[in-house]
Write a protein that binds this DNA or RNA. Structure first.
Length: 885
DNA sequence: CACGTCACG
DNA sequence: ACGTACGTGACGTGA
């Protein structure tokens, strides 16, 4: 089969479009020497590398649209009438994309009066006839109509590097119709983005149903008169002409008068020399480097840097320099609180020093340089560096540039804790940890320590190279104070919280584990008895069979893989069988036992403490996250789970736990940024906000008339508003009809017109700017705000509404944490800030300090940021975290 | 390694 | 007609 011919056809326009929006957030970072944007070019080429490797085509062609008018616009003048104009930043890249494709040995082609689809359709049929396997790459699902046993259509999903492969079987599975029926479906349902109508009120679902019954549109219309009288029938008859026209428009012409022959499109491979010149012109460093190392292992091919041993002599030089120096402290394990340092590197005044001998950390000169806050340093991941050095008895201060933090602030998606990956995102070709050390069982430190040392020096060099550019971008985005005053100082606070750790009594957890195990046993036996068989209750699959097949309970919801057995489903089945409540109980206890009672014990270290890791550069909103273990989701809502908090204690028996939380920060933030007068008034007057909302949306005169149920619904509505509300979501949440929910929302917006205005404005802002931001200028890019796909676009809109709220609340508590840490130091308190749970800080402190904290902490928290409404803080204390409520 | 489920704000 | 609340992490199951 070695001579099997393979034809690759790419829809140039739709893939370029996809490529452009996939990298829209870095639009301004990708500019060639002569000022032309290159983001789509870059993404297209990335995709091409992957495709060529996967497909190994013998023949290839990329088809483009020739212009606005085609045989379709002749048939229907408004074809693609509402399609947004191609952005000029993409327009200027299209000729470059064609040029690059030609340099990569791939022919491009366009034909007057025809679309790229028609060229692809025609060639794919010719290829098939010639016995070739054909693969089509496109961003447009319409092309799936071309699928046959020989022709696979791969549609880009999530940007351009991933595709979904459509074979006739996959089309059948996904849509329930054959590829040939797709044009009938399109005819019936029309196409919004190409702007041609189908039959009114007929969408994908209805169209597929009709086709399953009648086969084709022609078959359907032969029998339309026999249909029962219905709205659907009326619409079908009224829109018959439109439907047939739309079918024609949707049909790809597989007999276009193309002039290229299969023999003309043989894949030539790269034109090395000219391609290198082209990449240089575009400043595509990573592609250039890839070409050089194409033949061998990346590891061996890593360029060599000149470096000396980081020894006492080097340390002396480093310590005496007053220049900014770059430090790499390398560890390899999963968890930097446990894994050892395997090497260090320093760049100093243009010289590189590296070592794998950690005894350098005992050198007095080196130690004092590390600790000296006046000696300026660059690093990648300050928090991790502080924590690692701390375990070797070294203090670490003086960082001005943390490349990880900056890359995250510039784009929350560029948040990988691996310098290699971040460097790659900036177009530099540094291997990431998987590439350098190997993956899974193959992971190992290189035998030749020089190889490792060289790698660490490379890291230091990349940090230096990217510093100016990244800091300038931060300034351009008006994010320098977010970095200088919040994230960088916070990394030091978080390091100290992680290092201190929280004391957890293993014995207490063990005791709970035993009692839970006993109860689980009892419930388990009862369930088996009731069900009449033994099975694995923890397996949703087995449980589904027992509940819905053996016990024949009604199916409420299905998941992709089978019956849903989630809580909301089981709640509805409670009165149908006693086994349901038992399963709910079993689930609850089993969760608490495995995740917390048993799970947490594994993380208690020699010092009786748990040292979590706060991820500072992960979330898309600016919140922290906590891993290994997650200490931000310790149970509280149900008392059985809440008991777990009794194991969290202060480090000395006569100390106490102290906690303080913001009350309704997110709603207060919303009142502030929306400027809504009614909501602001409620907070200024310190009303019960949910009761106040209830009074307003139910049209009452006073909050005295608000019933608990009204308050509950108003509270849910307030939450919904913060999340970017939909009537369906709200109706599900509080168990009312969708109509009622819609009415609620309407009332809400009438009562809080400023909130309505904010929701509209922020979505508009996102559409115009491609991102939204918080009060401290934290950014989140939302490329999907332009998505064609309804669900994606709606999701982006809700995110646009929610992110400034959730993100500004995150900004506020971060400021409070930094200020609090400083106060503790200034006032010489022994209290330790240990945990943060999004709107709450948890401390341990000597009993005598509790009265001080009760005043100090709320005042620091409510004055962290000045808003148009007051911030409110509540605090509590007790012998364990359980009692500090 | 993906999925379903469920713990938190 | 579409398919839904926003943000997280960890566990057990089963391909």
């Amino acid at each position: 089969m070695a001579d099997k011919k393979k034809l690759l056809l790419i829809d140039g326009n739709s893939v370029s479009f996809r490529a452009f929006f996939a990298m829209h957030n870095v639009l301004d970072k990708f500019i060639s020497g002569d000022g032309i944007h290159t983001n789509a070019l870059y993404a297209f080429n990335n995709m091409l590398d992957i495709i060529l490797k996967d497909e190994k085509p013998t023949h290839a062609l990329v088809a483009f649209d020739a212009g606005k008018t085609t045989f379709r616009t002749e048939m229907f003048s408004d074809y693609k009438g509402t399609r947004a104009k191609t952005p000029p930043e993409l327009m200027e890249q299209l000729p470059l994309i064609q040029e690059m494709l030609n340099l990569r040995g791939i022919k491009t082609y366009e034909l007057k009066n025809y679309e790229a689809d028609d060229i692809i359709g025609t060639l794919s049929r010719e290829g098939e006839k010639d016995g070739m396997d054909v693969t089509i790459i496109t961003g447009d699902r319409d092309l799936t109509q071309l699928t046959t046993d020989k022709v696979t259509v791969k549609v880009n999903i999530k940007g351009v590097t991933e595709t979904e492969a459509y074979t006739p079987t996959h089309v059948k599975e996904k849509l329930g119709i054959t590829p040939e029926q797709i044009i009938d479906m399109k005819g019936l349902m029309g196409d919004n983005s190409d702007h041609y109508p189908g039959v009114e009120k007929v969408g994908e679902k209805t169209a597929i149903k009709l086709l399953n019954e009648y086969g084709t549109m022609e078959g359907l219309y032969e029998h339309v008169d026999e249909m029962k009288k219905s709205k659907l029938k009326e619409h079908l008859i009224n829109d018959k002409d439109q439907a047939f026209l739309s079918k024609k428009l949707a049909t790809i012409n597989c007999e276009a008068p193309i002039e290229v022959k299969l023999a003309d499109v043989e894949y030539q491979g790269d034109n090395q020399e000219q391609l290198i010149q082209f990449y240089q012109k575009m400043s595509f460093n990573s592609f250039l480097e890839k070409m050089d190392v194409d033949t061998g292992e990346t590891q061996a091919e890593l360029p060599e840097i000149k470096f000396a041993e980081l020894d006492a002599e080097a340390a002396k030089k480093i310590a005496s320099s007053n220049k900014t120096q770059t430090l790499i402290v390398e560890s390899l394990g999963e968890n930097y609180h446990i894994s050892p340092i395997i090497g260090l590197a320093v760049e100093s005044e243009g010289n590189f020093y590296a070592t794998t001998d950690v005894t350098i950390l005992e050198d007095a000169n080196f130690k004092s340089w590390l600790a000296d806050g006046k000696k300026e340093k660059y690093v990648f991941d300050n928090k991790k560096t502080i924590a690692l050095l701390n375990r070797y008895g070294c203090e670490f201060n003086g960082v001005s540039f943390d490349m990880l933090l900056v890359s995250y602030l510039l784009d929350t998606n560029n948040n990988k804790t691996d310098i290699g990956i971040v460097a790659q995102n900036y177009g530099h070709n540094l291997p990431n940890a998987d590439e350098f050390y190997g993956k899974g069982t193959k992971r190992a430190i290189p035998e030749d320590e020089k190889v490792l040392m060289n790698f660490l020096c490379q890291k230091a060099q990349i940090i230096n190279e990217l510093h100016d550019k990244m800091m300038q971008e931060l300034k351009d985005n008006d994010q320098d104070s977010l970095y200088d005053e919040i994230e960088l100082p916070l990394s030091i606070v978080l390091a100290s919280m992680e290092i201190k750790g929280v004391t957890v009594e293993a014995a207490k957890l063990k005791e709970m584990e035993n009692s839970f195990a006993e109860r689980l046993n009892t419930i388990e036996q009862k369930i088996y008895q009731e069900a009449g068989e033994e099975f694995n209750i923890n397996s949703p699959k087995q449980l589904g069979v027992v509940l819905f097949e053996d016990l024949k309970l009604p199916v409420i919801k299905k998941t992709k893989t089978g019956y849903s057995t989630a809580v909301d489903v089981l709640e509805k089945l409670k009165d149908k069988s006693p086994v349901v409540q038992m399963i709910l109980d079993y689930r609850q206890i089993s969760k608490i036992n495995s995740t917390y009672a048993i799970g947490l014990q594994k993380f208690i270290q020699q010092d009786n403490k748990i040292h979590t890791i706060y991820q500072q550069t992960l979330t898309q909103t600016g919140r922290l996250s906590s891993i290994d273990p997650n200490l931000q989701n310790i149970p509280i809502r149900i008392d059985e789970g809440r008991q777990i908090r009794k194991a969290f204690v202060p480090k000395h028996p006569d100390w106490e736990m102290f906690s303080a939380d913001y009350s309704q920060v997110e709603l207060r933030v919303l009142a502030h940024i929306s400027g809504d007068e009614n909501m602001q008034e409620a907070f200024k007057e310190d009303y019960d906000i949910h009761a106040h909302t209830a009074m307003r949306i139910f049209g009452l005169d006073t909050t005295d008339d608000v019933t608990p149920d009204m308050r509950r619904k108003a509270k849910a509505t307030n939450f919904g508003i913060v999340y970017g509300i939909s009537d369906y979501g709200l109706s599900q949440n509080i168990g009312i009809t969708r109509k009622e929910a819609a009415q609620f929302i309407e009332n809400y917006f009438e009562q809080y017109p400023g909130v309505k205005q904010y929701m509209d404005d922020i979505v508009k802002f996102a559409r115009e700017n491609g991102y939204v931001e918080t009060i401290m200028h934290r950014r989140r890019y939302l490329p999907d705000i332009h998505a064609k796909n309804f669900a994606l676009r709606n999701f982006a809109q809700r995110t646009a509404m929610n992110t400034p709220i959730q993100g500004s609340a995150a900004d506020i508590i971060k400021v409070a944490m930094i200020n609090m840490q400083k106060k503790i130091k200034d006032e010489n308190l022994q209290a330790n800030l240990l945990l943060q749970v999004h709107d709450e800080m948890i401390f341990e402190a000597p009993k005598e300090e509790i009265p001080i904290l009760e005043k100090l902490v709320p005042s620091v928290m409510d004055s962290a940021v000045k808003l148009d409404v007051p911030l409110k803080v509540e605090s509590a204390h007790g012998k364990t975290w359980y009692e500090a409520k």
